[in-house]
Every structure is written in structure tokens, then in C-alpha cells.
Design a protein around this nucleic acid. Sequence first.
DNA 1: GCTCTCATGTAAATGGTTACATGATTCT
DNA 2: AGAATCATGTAACCATTTACATGAGAGC
Lengths: 187, 187
Amino acid sequence: MIFNTTTYLVLGILLREPKSGYDIVKELASFRPAKSSQIYPILAKLEANGFVDCTQVQQDGKPNKKVYSVTSTGKAKLEAWLDTEPEPPVIRDDFLSMVYSVWIKEPETLERLIKDRKTYMEQRLDFFTEKLAVMEASFPADIHNFYSWRHCTRLLYSRRIAMTAQEIEWCNDVLKDHALARRTTEA
Amino acid sequence: MIFNTTTYLVLGILLREPKSGYDIVKELASFRPAKSSQIYPILAKLEANGFVDCTQVQQDGKPNKKVYSVTSTGKAKLEAWLDTEPEPPVIRDDFLSMVYSVWIKEPETLERLIKDRKTYMEQRLDFFTEKLAVMEASFPADIHNFYSWRHCTRLLYSRRIAMTAQEIEWCNDVLKDHALARRTTEA
DNA sequence: GCTCTCATGTAAATGGTTACATGATTCT
DNA sequence: AGAATCATGTAACCATTTACATGAGAGC
């Protein structure tokens, strides 16, 4: 069986807390989005190879669901992965590809591109700041405990927040430069 | 013909300056890495559909190469794309997936992960800082001229540098927290 | 009756990587 | 002779997305 990064992520999610495929998709949404058509086959393979167990759970007011939990073999596999070196990050960002070529258009196009990006990043910043605040209020002890998964979540939120704030700052710098240069040209 | 983001990037590279497939791969390497097996078919398709022209160039001391340049149709296509809205960015980062699950291991694993990341980011920071410095020294006028492609390159470098510096800062924060918490535990 | 959320999947297509194949030229 | 860089490509595979299919239950 082939273990790619997404498969390890699924194991990691289920190790925190048993979940259904549908719930895994929701958990991934804000962090590393994946479609259900990718998750369900991964779960099926993990189960077929004994890395996760599955139990049917009846719900009232909702359809039944299949809740998966990690086996000891699954946990061992995840632990072994954490001792390896991660690949360098890959960023797919259309926005950057557009900035790369935006010099062929009027300056207004760059301005629009940056303003839209800033708006998007401000929304993301609010989203993650809120998430972190809720977690801090709900689990004040866990988030500073090395052996709690919420500690890891806190680290990831704080990184996201810092990165997003940094990008907003960059947008402001570009817009400032832009305004300055245009005033100079007009004068 | 299907135009994906990579195809637009190839057009953007060739519009700055005509290049061979081999050169395009090198140009992309530090920004959005792609393999030659992806670039050559894109060039073939672009040529077959009249978006780029190709001329054989003899070189001495090196094998001959095929240099591509963008046609007016190709430029129009790129311009139209710049008026659309970019998709939200996608980040594939094994490191983050590892941090997500590292709570199941001893704290040393997190420490190692962060230290290695910091080292990697410091290398990247040096690389981009050097690149920007060279460009600033070589083309002091261009980098502030809206209608020069080097202006766009400067924006992308400055963003990369700020982002990378920010990530190093985050690594330092995590390591400081970590040291503090361990001292508290030992005391 | 219609839409929304919950829930699980399959099939086809696209985007990208890995592996392979070939050949010129330069440097050691 | 062997490795390194330059140069162009093909074939097979993997990862992910898009589109499709189905169905229960809730709320309007």
C-alpha cells in the first residue's frame, strides 16, 4: 500500500479523534482542502490493510455513518513517518503567477490584484484569529501541553495568523509604493 | 486547447524574453518548480495552436536549441487571464502535516522538525536576499518602473523574503516556548 | 414540493512526477 | 574514460479534481 502525505494526514486526524469520512473532509477544509472523492478511497485502503478500524454508528435525525479509528499498526506507521524529513513545501498560487506578468497591463490591474488579495487575506486572518481565540478560551490548559494535540493546533494557527498578517503588510507596502510612484509621475 | 496556470506562466516567461524549454525550467526552478517533462508538451501545444513561435538557434560549445517567443494571439490570451480572479492559493507542505501529528511523539521530535525547518528557511532567505541584491545593483531604474518586468520580479522577491523571515521568526518563537516549558517541567 | 445538510461513494479527466531514452559538448 | 551540463522529448504512473449517482432527514 502506498502512503502519501494525504494518507498520513488522514491517519493523524483519526488518531486525534475517531471520525467519519465526511468529518475528515470538514476537518481538512481550512487547513489542506481535499474532496470527499479523495478521502473515501483512502479510508477504504487504510481499512483493507488494517491501519484503521471501522464501526457503523446510528444517528437520530441524520443518516448513519462509518466512524474510523486508528489501529496500533496505523499509529506505528504515523510515528515512523514523523522521524523522516519532510519534502520542501510546494506553493500553487495563481495570484503570484499573475503578479509575475502584470507589468504588461496598466498599473490599475496590479492595484486591483493587490487590493483583492488584501481583502481575501483579511478574511482569512479574521477566521483564524477567531478559531484560535475560541480554542484558547475553551482549552486554556491543553494548548500549552506538549502531549495534547491542541498544542499542535495552536502552533499551526499561530503560524497561519503570522503569515497572513505578514502578507497583508506586504500588500500595504505595495499599495503605498504604487500611490507614491503615481503621484510622482503626475507631478 | 486547455490553458492551465502553468501554461500562462510559460507564456509570461516567454513574453519577458524568448527562451528554450530548458531555460524555462531553470527560470521556474526557484519560483514554481516544474519538470521538463511538463514544460516540453506545453510548448508543443502552444506552438501547434499559434500562441508561440519557434526558431532553431545554433550554439557553439553547446547543443542547438529551440527558442520560443510569444505571438500577438499569445499575448492577448495572457492579458485576458490577468483580468480574471485568481483561485485561492494551495499550500502543500509536509512539514505542517507533520507538526499536526507530532504531539504523539516526544518533544524532541518537534524540536528537531522546527530546527531543520529554520535551517532550510535561512538558506532560502539568503538565496532570495542575494538575488534581490544582485538585481537592485544591476538594474536600479527598472525595478521601480511599472512597465518593466523587473518591477514585478522585485515585488515577488520582497514578498518571498518577508514571508521567509516571518517563518524563521515563528520557528524561533516555537523553540523559545519549548525551552521555557521544559525548564518549567524540570524545575 | 423544494432545498439544505449529512453521508458515502464511483468514473473520468487533468495536472504533475518519475522513470526512461537520446545525444552533443566540456571538463577532469 | 567518465562525469557534468546542455538540450529535447516519451511513457507510465500517481495525486487530485470534476462530474456524477444515490439516499436519508430537516426545515420551509
